[in-house]
Structures are given as structure tokens and as C-alpha cells.
């Protein structure tokens, strides 16, 4: 993929920036050549993302479980609750920097971002609908039928258009404007604690929370549980069908971590300190070899070091991602229709 492909042709348009991540980011893996960033498609993606029309009872949108102010995770939810308040089994992950993610979900079970939305739409504890029904609803909706025609020049809306539009919105959720990024760009300085935190992260964490995206996009068992055979969520084994992958989960990025509690694939803890120290607590045949030395104690990190790591993690919070209205629900997108949830949706929180 050539870089030219990923820069919006019309960069002068301030409403939609070109796909121009910071220079210190690696090359994205998302194939933009099949879905060139376009203002109309992006806007459609944003509408779909925030529109409960994608759920069976018209109460749940993607934005219900992926909230901008907390880096597109689900505020205060250990595991996400979807349609009729039914709980899922995993914690809602951030949607930042998806353009770099080779596989989706905690276990990497979905190989391409474009088809990912089919999972929540058709999941009975998330949005609970069926694709043909969703397409019927969109085609019947005057706003969508007009907007899709404008963006895709096709007579009717099919799933490919819907999925490409959603993907456009999601790949644009780049998080690379934190204090740490400014530091790398020579535009900001870090305090001593923050710098020491950075050093500890590079020493003790960067083998997994690697590079400028702070993840290796690989799967590790970090020894969170005393008995990995007892637990129904098999993690990466679900995908590879190999026992040696049981209870391995994708390394989450450390970016915006300060705002995305609760932590871990099942949201087991709210406390960043516990969560760091938990790494390597319990042995198992699948425990990552780098963590073997910490068995019984958890990762070797003093309270003081932990405080510094915390200080550094705070520099990874990106106000642009959390507040830029480009990524927000816009009532104007939907005019003349209202975005107020129906009465029967009171169960959603």
C-alpha cells in the first residue's frame, strides 16, 4: 500500500482530516485501496455507529458500548451489556488505532475490520438483529437511502456499503496526539517521573506493549488465573483450536489506558496498579515465558515504580480522540430526525 492512498485527497477540508497519523506510527495494515477515505462515506459511518437502528429493538448502538469520552470503551462496565440488558462475556475494548490491528477481538477471532460489525449486530446479547432486517430498515429510511446513494452511487444499500462506511469511521479513530506524542515530536517535555515511567515500560513491558502503539498485536497468557482449565473463555484457543493457546488474549495498547477502566479481557479490575502487578501471578503451561520469573509474586515492580509507570500512562491520554466532535454523535447528521432514545430504551445505561 502506498502512503498516498491513505491521505485524503482534499486535505483542505477541515471537517474530515486526511488519514495522516503521526510520522512515528508504523504503516497501517488496513487496506485503504478498497475503501478510499471520503467525507460522505465517513459521515455515513459515523451515523451508523451512533444509530440504534442497527439493533433489533432500536435501543443499542455501537456507541452504547464504545463511548468516545472513555476512548470508545464501555464506561464502568466489567463486561458490556447489550440488548435487553443482557451481559456479554468480555470487556469492551478501545477502538483507537484499529487501522493497525491485524485481527480483531480479544482472541483475534475476526480477521478483517470491515466484517467485524456483523458480530455485534447479530449477537443476541449485543444488538440481536439479523443482517437482512437491518438492511431493510436502512433502505426504508429516507435519510439513509439518500445519503448512501450520494456516497456510493448505487440504487440500494447493501451490506458491503454499510460495512465499508462503518470501517471508514473506525479507521479514522487514530490516537496519536497525546502529550507523549508531543514529546516525541519535540513539542512537549515529560516530567522526571514520567520519563522514569517510560524507561520502566521500555524495560519491563515493551516486549508485549511494544512500539509506539504499545502493543505487539499478539496473544499472551499473562497468568491471571490459578486454574486456566476451569474457565469457559478459552481465549486464543477458540480461534486456533490449539491447547497451547488457551487463555491467551491480545495485548491491549497502553494508550488512553488512564480512562479505560475496568481492565483486562473480563474487566476484572478497576485499579491500574493491581492490574499491572497481576501479570505473571499464576503459573500454567501457557504462561508467557517472559513472565515465568514472576510466578507467585506478579510482575516485579515496586509501588514507586508503579506510580511512575502510572504517571507515564497518563501522558498517553489523547484529548483529540476523547473530545474531537469529528468522532462524536452529531444530532445534525440526523436532521430532521431526532436522536432521542425511545421510552422503551430506558434500560440502556
Amino acid at each position: 500500500m502506498k502512503d498516498e492512498n491513505v491521505v485524503l485527497s482534499d486535505n483542505s477540508n477541515k471537517n474530515i482530516p486526511g488519514f495522516a497519523p503521526p510520522a512515528h506510527f508504523p504503516k497501517p495494515v488496513y487496506d485503504f485501496s478498497g475503501n478510499t477515505i471520503d467525507q460522505k462515506k465517513f459521515r455515513l459511518g459515523r451515523m451508523l455507529f451512533y444509530d440504534p437502528i442497527l439493533s433489533l429493538d432500536s435501543c443499542i448502538s455501537c456507541g452504547t458500548c464504545h463511548q468516545q469520552s472513555v476512548a470508545f470503551t464501555h464506561l464502568n462496565h466489567t463486561v458490556s451489556h447489550g440488548i435487553n440488558g443482557l451481559p456479554g462475556s468480555r470487556n469492551s475494548p478501545t477502538l483507537a488505532n484499529l487501522a493497525w490491528s491485524p485481527q480483531l477481538m480479544w482472541d483475534g477471532g475476526i480477521p478483517n475490520l470491515e466484517i467485524q460489525p456483523l458480530a455485534p449486530i447479530e449477537n443476541h446479547v449485543e444488538m440481536g438483529d439479523k443482517l437482512p432486517n437491518v438492511l431493510r430498515k436502512l433502505n426504508r429510511h429516507p435519510l439513509y437511502s439518500t445519503r448512501f446513494k450520494e456516497a456510493f452511487q448505487k440504487d440500494s444499500i447493501d451490506s458491503q456499503q454499510m460495512l465499508k462506511a462503518l470501517a471508514q469511521f473506525m479507521v479514522m479513530l487514530v490516537s496519536g496526539n497525546s502529550k507523549y506524542d508531543h514529546y516525541l515530536q519535540g513539542k512537549a517535555t515529560l516530567s522526571n517521573d514520567e520519563l522514569e515511567g517510560l524507561k520502566i515500560v521500555k524495560e519491563k513491558c515493551a516486549s508485549c506493549h511494544a512500539g509506539e502503539l504499545f502493543t505487539d498485536f499478539a496473544y499472551h497468557n499473562i497468568g491471571l488465573d490459578s486454574n486456566i482449565l476451569d474457565i469457559s473463555d478459552l481465549g486464543r484457543e477458540t480461534v486456533t483450536k490449539r491447547k497451547q493457546d488457551r487463555r491467551k488474549f491480545k495485548t491491549p495498547s497502553l494508550r488512553n489506558m488512564a480512562v479505560t477502566k475496568p481492565y483486562m479481557h473480563d474487566g476484572r479490575t478497576n485499579d491500574l496498579k493491581t492490574c499491572i502487578k497481576n501479570h505473571g501471578e499464576f503459573d500454567s503451561p501457557n504462561l508467557d515465558s517472559q513472565l515465568k520469573k514472576y510466578i507467585g509474586t506478579g510482575i516485579a515492580i515496586s509501588d514507586e515504580e508503579c506510580m511512575k509507570v502510572n504517571a507515564f500512562i497518563n501522558t498517553l491520554t489523547d484529548p483529540t480522540l476523547l473530545t474531537d466532535t469529528l468522532f462524536s454523535l452529531r444530532t445534525t447528521d440526523f436532521l430532521p430526525y431526532s436522536t432521542k432514545p425511545a421510552k422503551h430504551c430506558d434500560y440502556v445505561h
Binding site: I110, N112, I115, E122, D158
Partner: peptide, 21 residues
């Protein structure tokens, strides 16, 4: 082909032959 993104025609997910996972 399976892993190459949103498809159309005979590969459209609307046909009920694709299960994302």
C-alpha cells in the same frame, strides 16, 4: 478472500453463508 474485507455478489454476507468468526 475470506479475510479480505466486506464482499458483495455471491460472497455478500446477506446470503447467510458467512459467520464472521
Amino acid at each position: 478472500q475470506t479475510e479480505s474485507g466486506a464482499q458483495t455478489g455471491d460472497l455478500s454476507p446477506d446470503l447467510g453463508m458467512l459467520w464472521v468468526w
